[in-house]
Simulated assay, not measured.
Amino acid sequence: MNNLGTDRRTRKRLATRQAISNVATRLFMERGFDQVTIDEIADAADVGRMTVFNHFPRKEDMFFDREQDGHDLAFEAIRSRAPGTSPVQALGVLAHQMIEEPSDAFPLFADTRTFVETAQASEPLKARARQMRDDFVRALAGVLADGVGRAADDPEAYLAAGLIAATWSIAFTRAHAELSATGNVEAAKGIFLGLIDRGVIGTHAALGGTPFSGAV
Rank of each mutant, 00 (worst) to 15 (best):
I99Q: 01
R9D: 10
A127N: 09
A95N: 07
Q18V: 04
S21D: 07
Q89N: 11
V148P: 05
Q68I: 15
L159S: 08
E60V: 12
N184W: 00
A90H: 04
D65G: 02
I99N: 00
V185C: 01
A44I: 00
N22I: 06
A141S: 07
D111L: 13
G194A: 13
E76W: 01
G214V: 07
D146L: 03
L91K: 05
N3K: 12
I20L: 08
H55S: 06
S180E: 14
R8F: 06
L27N: 07
T112V: 01
G162Q: 10
F33N: 00
M62P: 03
M98Q: 15
R66D: 12
R66I: 08
T203F: 03
G208D: 09
A24Q: 09
S213T: 02
A188H: 03
A206R: 15
V23N: 09
A44T: 06
A177S: 15
A157T: 04
S80H: 15
T6F: 14
D65V: 10
E101M: 09
Q18E: 11
S103M: 03
D134F: 11
H204F: 00
S213M: 03
L125S: 04
L159V: 15
A205Q: 04
R17I: 02
F28Q: 10
D43K: 15
Q120P: 02
H204P: 00
F106A: 05
T16V: 14
T182D: 11
G92E: 07
E40G: 12
L193S: 00
D65A: 13
Q18P: 02
G5I: 08
E76M: 09
Q97C: 08
D135P: 04
V200M: 06
T118G: 01
T16Y: 07
R49G: 05
D197G: 00
R8H: 10
F136E: 11
E100V: 06
A151E: 15
V200Y: 07
A177V: 12
P155M: 05
G202M: 05
E123K: 10
R133Q: 13
D69L: 14
L140R: 04
F64S: 11
P155Q: 04
A188T: 06
A42R: 05
Q97W: 04
N22F: 09
A110N: 11
I99P: 03
Y158E: 06
G149Y: 04
M29Q: 13
I191W: 05
Q120C: 07
R9T: 12
D65I: 01
S213G: 06
D134Q: 13
L73Q: 08
V47I: 07
D46K: 14
A157W: 00
D153Q: 14
P57A: 09
G162D: 08
A42F: 07
T182L: 08
M29C: 08
D34I: 07
V137W: 05
F28D: 09
A177Y: 13
L193G: 03
K59G: 13
D39F: 00
D61M: 09
G183Q: 12
I196T: 03
D153E: 14
F192T: 00
R198F: 04
G190Y: 05
I164Q: 05
N3Q: 14
A127W: 02
G183H: 09
N184P: 01
A171M: 05
